[in-house]
Write a protein that binds this DNA or RNA. Structure first.
Length: 615
DNA sequence: ATGACGTTGTATGA
DNA sequence: TCATACAACGTCAT
């Protein structure tokens, strides 16, 4: 191949440092290099992406574009507004591409898409080169070492990875890149049909205009703006910044504190710490690839080996966190698309949760409202108005900033599922998908299974208390005061349980604790103008914990997994869990009636609270 | 078969 | 600041 013309397809590798795929592209000694980002409708419309993550992504794209220009003034990131499946074959022809290069992505959707793209490239006589780069090890290689089985514990993962040797050393940033070829485009873009638009809720300004022109409104291939996407800038409220430059600066700063790096123990870091947080906050960069996971590992190992003194070990140290990430990627790879839900998933335990996913999946009615009460609990959880200050503080921090500490995620996930509301973990995973900057499908899904004790973890009797767990880390409640400002005036004694404060204390604190009306879905009817209120707890936690514990015990005895045919056809709940249903249902309609009146939600899952709650 | 272990629980009592 | 009961899960090494 004398004059390779390379299309480098950027996806979740928005960086120029340690990019094995970019190095592979440059090793071809190309005559020209096209650095392309395709505006995949899977991301634009089908995945749940909140304003904060849109902003973070755009920042990553802009920073990458600037880096490419630094490496060659004629270069920039070419953002094209069309689906890869229809766009890439046209580009192969238009730019006489000889090689397509990209970093492997083993997420379920991406793997399927990439297989199709590889086929299209072969049909166009374009050679495809891929490299593993998103994880420390290739998930497929890990699973092969693990005998084809999903890695369900860190022990099995570590054993499998040991046979593969150390992860590759990080590669340096290239000193230069070749010119692009001719950038003219002789065709208009094909606008993908809108079948699903899970992000419609966020497009308050106007409809999505990201597909209005192939190379952007100014024909300059620029990354989109929030304005173009119809998302008001004011709704992106995160203080966290995207981009490789920010990521590497943040990493360098962390590495200066060798004691922090070498003695890091995750369970000893406080979920209540803010400004600064107790952990590295590098996870969003790992997701978008603005930081290489191998670069992170290598730098941590270098600083740790130079550190004099006793050091922390996996699984609690910093490398241990990265191993867990890889473990989830490998498990997802082994299970396939079913990893994202219960039905058909062989590794997940079946629990007859409230608000189960609709089968077959439907984007307009994603779940069944089997219990209006549980639905209200779910919405109140998602919007941080449960009446449990620690839970609400965490959920509001998540919504505002797009990041909460790992242990905080444990707390709210346990609370929604096996330790409180008894709501399906898939509902919680969807809310996290929308709000987290660092949303990594494999890790998010894996951790939700972990915390709901449906896979990876089974000690369901270890249950987090929304009062005790907060107090343990932050006895004075500074974290609660920061994110639930209406409670600021309460004394430490009441900060985690303000509903127990006498009326006089509430008056002194300038905030009254009152029940929400209509089963908790509506704000108070009787509130006075100018008066500040905070809701009473949405349920008796001790009572709910006991109930959940009993249900979990029963479900473990029944012992069904997601791939059981009785789970798929819906008979499992009816035939094996009748007693579960009736034992909880003491106050509302009978089991019989509820089953017949089961309805699905027409609006988006969070529609109810949004408008009414915001007033 | 058996026992140790598993990243990160809570309440109680000394 | 410890230790222990709570009621008791799955995985892995032996």
């Amino acid at each position: 191949m004398p004059h390779p013309r390379v299309l480098y397809w950027f996806r979740t590798d928005l960086r120029v440092h340690d990019s094995p795929a970019l190095h592979a592209a440059l090793a071809l000694e190309p005559q020209c290099l096209y650095p392309v980002w395709c505006w995949d409708p899977h991301y634009v419309r089908e995945a749940r992406v909140g304003p904060n993550r849109w902003q973070f992504l755009i920042q990553c794209q802009r920073d990458l574009s600037a880096s490419l220009t630094r490496l060659n003034p004629a270069q920039r990131l070419l953002v094209l507004r069309e689906a890869p499946g229809t766009l890439l074959p046209k580009l192969f022809k238009e730019w006489a591409i000889t090689h397509l290069v990209f970093e492997k992505d083993t997420d379920s959707y991406a793997a399927q898409r990439d297989a199709e793209i590889v086929k299209l490239a072969q049909e166009a006589d374009v050679q495809v080169i891929t490299r593993t780069g998103r994880t420390l090890w290739d998930p497929a290689a890990i699973i092969k070492e693990n005998g084809g089985k999903a890695t369900m514990s860190l022990t099995s993962f570590m054993k499998a990875s040991k046979n593969l040797g150390d992860p590759p050393k990080p590669l340096p940033e290239p000193s230069s890149i070749p010119d692009p070829g001719d950038l003219s485009l002789s065709f208009l873009n094909t606008v993908p049909p809108t079948v699903i638009d899970l992000n419609k809720l966020h497009r308050q300004k106007h409809d999505d205009e990201s597909y209005s022109a192939l190379a952007g409104p100014n024909s300059d291939f620029a990354p989109p703006t929030l304005e173009e996407l119809g998302i008001p800038e004011s709704t992106a409220t995160t203080p966290h910044q995207g981009g490789e430059t920010v990521a590497l600066t943040q990493l360098a700063k962390l590495l200066e504190d060798s004691k922090f790096i070498a003695t890091f123990e995750k369970p000893k870091t406080a979920p209540t710490a803010f400004e600064p947080a107790a952990t590295t906050l590098l996870s969003p960069h790992l997701h978008f690839g603005s930081l290489s996971v191998r670069r992170f590992l290598h730098d941590v190992q270098r600083v740790t080996s130079a550190y004099k003194g006793s050091k922390s070990q996996p699984p609690t140290n910093l490398p241990g966190q990265l191993y867990f990430r890889d473990m989830y990627f490998a498990a997802q790879h082994a299970v396939g698309p079913a990893f994202s839900h219960t039905v058909g998933n062989p590794v997940v335990r079946y629990i007859p949760w409230h608000l189960p996913s609709t089968m077959p999946p439907s984007p307009t009615a994603p779940y069944t409202i089997d219990s209006p009460r549980a639905h209200a609990w779910f919405l109140r959880w998602a919007w941080g108005v449960t009446g449990f200050p620690f839970v609400d503080a965490l959920m509001r921090q998540l919504r505002q900033e797009g990041w909460i500490h790992h242990l905080g995620r444990h707390m709210v996930a346990c609370f929604l599922t096996r330790g409180g509301a008894y709501v399906d973990w898939e509902r919680g995973a969807e809310v996290f998908e929308e709000l987290l900057l660092d949303h990594e499908p494999a890790c998010n899904l894996g951790n939700w299974m972990w915390l709901s004790c449906t896979a990876f973890f089974a000690q369901y009797y270890r249950c987090y208390s929304p009062v005790a767990f907060g107090k343990k880390w932050d006895p004075h409640g500074a974290f609660v005061r920061r994110y639930v400002p209406e409670l600021r005036g309460f004394a430490d004694k009441w900060i985690y349980e303000p509903h127990l404060a006498p009326e006089a204390e509430q008056r002194k604190a300038g905030c009254f604790i009152r029940d929400l009306e209509d089963g908790g879905l509506l704000p108070l009817k009787t509130q006075a103008a100018g008066q500040v209120y905070y809701p009473s707890p949405m349920f008796d936690f001790a009572e709910r914990r006991d109930f959940c514990l009993a249900q979990m015990k029963k479900a473990y005895q029944v012992g069904l997994h997601g791939d059981d045919p009785r789970v798929r056809d819906g008979t499992a709940k009816a035939e094996l869990f009748e007693q579960v249903e009736s034992s909880e249902n003491t106050t509302t309609a009978s089991t019989h009636k509820r089953k017949r009146t089961r309805s699905t939600n027409e609006a988006g899952p969070l529609d109810g609270w949004v408008k009414k709650g915001k007033k």
